[in-house]
Amino acid sequence: MVVALLLLLLVPLRSLTRAPEAVAPAPARAAAETRSVQLTLVATARPVTFSVTHLGREIWKGEAAGQPVETTLDLPWPAEGVDLGVSATWPGGVTGALKLEATPEGDEPQTRTAWGDGAVEETFTYR
């Protein structure tokens, strides 16, 4: 009887005195699918100096002088979508519009537009 009681006591004592188990760090989330994306930029003002960023990193920059300019890049493209930062300036401080179209391979183009007086700085979301 005494032995049985002692054995019963051992279980809670064990849990109180054992060293804490090492906690495994949270696993890294699976990376989003990378897709080939065509970007096309059109501006009403000219010349326009522009920069496009993704996750804080500049992925495209250049000048546009009236005609559309485009590039194709590989970008991680999760189902939740992608944010692209766009900044652009043009001379004279005149009102102008800037359009950035993103076309992930196999998908329809998605267009976002911003207006500004001599400059725009916007964050566009594409799904």
Partner: peptide, 9 residues
Amino acid sequence: QQVALLPRD
């Protein structure tokens, strides 16, 4: 601009 530093997923 700030939250754009984080992937949407």
